[in-house]
Computed example of a mutant assay.
Amino acid sequence: MGSVSALPEPKLLTVPEVMSALRLSRFKVYDLIRSGELESITIGRARRVPADALDAFIAQLREDAA
Rank of each mutant, 00 (worst) to 15 (best):
L12D: 03
M19N: 06
P16Y: 10
L61R: 14
L13A: 03
L32Q: 06
R62G: 08
R23V: 08
A21F: 07
P8T: 11
E9Y: 02
E9R: 10
P10C: 09
L61D: 07
R34C: 04
P8M: 06
V29C: 03
P50G: 04
Y30G: 04
E39A: 11
R26F: 06
A65F: 07
G2E: 14
K11I: 09
S20G: 11
R45P: 10
E9V: 13
A6V: 13
S40K: 05
V15C: 06
K28C: 02
A59N: 06
A56L: 15
R48P: 04
T14Q: 09
P8I: 09
D55T: 14
A59G: 03
A53N: 05
V15Y: 00
Y30W: 14
A56D: 14
S25C: 09
A66T: 14
L54S: 06
S3L: 11
L38Q: 03
L12R: 01
D31K: 10
T14S: 15
A65V: 08
A51H: 04
D52P: 02
Q60A: 15
V18C: 06
A51Q: 04
A53L: 02
L54F: 06
G44Q: 08
A21W: 04
R47E: 00
L32P: 03
A21T: 01
A65R: 11
L54H: 01
I58W: 00
E39P: 05
F57P: 01
M1I: 09
T42F: 08
D31E: 13
